[in-house]
Amino acid sequence: MRTVILRSSDGADHIVSSEAASLSRTVQSLLEELEAKEGEESPLIVPLPNVCDCTLRKVLQYCIQHTEPGTNLTGRIHVSETRRRDLEVWDRNYMLVSTDELYHLVMAAHYLNVPGLLELCCEGIANLIRGKSPQHVRQHFGLVNNFEKAEEEDIRRTNLWALVDEKELAKK
């Protein structure tokens, strides 16, 4: 199997199978270009200036896990039921990261265009929002309440359902 080298923004190289690397559509199209230019024999080095080493390492964990035997390139078809369930458990554990890490991961998944990972991250972020009050969400994601007084009053008035349970949530 062919291997490729992915180079992070801070210059660290990661050697992975081209199969795993191609889960990223961005990398896949870069590889195709490189192959056309350099020929099939030369080593393929893909620089990824938008992804730091730490995040790239994490992304590659996902790519490798999702290209293990029994999975094909898209990671969807021909997957046995047991394998699918194992992957789900693995994904859940994989998502146990800090909010900061999650932010970097979702940005990387977006830039590298790894559909499965992007979906997983978005669901992970959505999970952090569910059941919280606006103030809790702000705290969690480091957002600043930048509404003017009048605007906030308007929101309070017209978005009742967003505020209804604040009292109950405060109790928890």
Partner: peptide, 28 residues
């Protein structure tokens, strides 16, 4: 998080519904 690209923000919000979506939209 305030500066997530538009399409990414939309993608995340698409995972939410009802009250949770209302809450997310009221945060900033």
């Amino acid at each position: 998080f305030e500066n997530l690209p538009d399409e990414l923000l939309m993608e995340i919000l698409a995972h939410l519904k009802d009250r949770d979506l209302g809450v997310a939209l009221c945060t900033s």
